Simulated assay, not measured.
Amino acid sequence: MPAKSKAQQKAAGAALAAKRGDAKVSDLKGASRSMEKSMSEKELEDLASTKRKGKPEHADDPS
């Protein structure tokens, strides 16, 4: 499942880093914290690897 926005892709990347032990889980906030708890490493990889080109900054942005 590809990320729908740049923000979602960035949050998935932060959650993936924490899940792999490259970052502290305690440093996560908001969406990335809940993603780390509720998603598998594979799901986070899929979201984080989405290309950013052409994506809006946030999913509800009309641009």
Rank of each mutant, 00 (worst) to 15 (best):
Lys6Cys: 12
Lys10Gln: 09
Gly13Ile: 04
Ala23Val: 02
Gly54Trp: 02
Lys53Ser: 04
Ala17Glu: 15
Ser38Lys: 14
Ala15Asp: 03
Ser32Cys: 08
Glu36Asp: 09
Ala59Val: 02
Glu41Met: 06
Gln9Lys: 12
Ala12His: 09
Ser49Ala: 14
Gln9His: 00
Ala31Met: 06
Pro56Cys: 05
Pro2Met: 00
Ser49Pro: 11
Ser34Ile: 06
Ala18Ser: 11
Glu43Leu: 07
Ala14Trp: 05
Ser38Glu: 06
Leu44Met: 02
Glu36Ile: 04
Leu44Trp: 03
Leu16Lys: 00
Glu45Thr: 11
Ala23Thr: 09
Leu44Tyr: 01
Ala48Met: 15
Ala59Gln: 09
Glu43Trp: 09
Ser34Cys: 06
Ser63Glu: 15
Pro56Lys: 10
Ala59Leu: 03
Ala14Lys: 00
Lys55Thr: 11
Glu45Leu: 03
Gln8Tyr: 02
Ala15Val: 09
Ala18Asn: 03
Pro2Gly: 00
Lys42Ala: 13
Met35Ala: 07
Met39Tyr: 14
Pro62Ala: 14
Lys10Tyr: 01
Arg20Ser: 04
Lys19Phe: 02
Ala23Gln: 10
Gly30Trp: 06
Ala3Pro: 13
Leu28Ser: 08
His58Asn: 14
Leu28Ile: 06
Lys37Thr: 11
Pro62Ser: 12
Pro56Thr: 03
Ser49Leu: 05
Leu16Met: 07
Ser34Pro: 03
Ala12Glu: 07
Thr50Ser: 11
Ser49Val: 03
Ser40Val: 10
Thr50Trp: 05
Met1Tyr: 13
His58Trp: 06
His58Gly: 07
Arg20Thr: 09
Arg52Tyr: 07
Ala18Leu: 05
Gly54Gln: 13
Ala23Ser: 12
Ala23Ile: 01
Ala18Glu: 02
Ala3Gln: 14
Glu57His: 13
Lys51Arg: 14
Lys53Val: 09
Leu47Asn: 05
Glu36His: 01
Ala3Lys: 02
Ala59Phe: 13
Ala3Tyr: 13
Asp22His: 10
Asp27Ser: 12
Glu57Lys: 15
Ser26Met: 04
Ser26His: 06
Lys19Gln: 08
Leu47Phe: 15
Leu28His: 01
Asp22Thr: 12
Leu44Ala: 08
Lys10Thr: 04
Ala14Pro: 00
Ala11Met: 03
Lys19Pro: 00
Lys10Pro: 02
Lys4Tyr: 02
Ser38Asn: 13
Ala7Glu: 14
Pro56Met: 02
Asp60Lys: 06
Ala48Phe: 09
Lys10Arg: 04
Met1Gln: 13
Asp60Met: 09
Leu47Trp: 14
Ser5Thr: 07
Lys51Met: 10
Pro56His: 08
Ala17Met: 10
Ala3Trp: 14
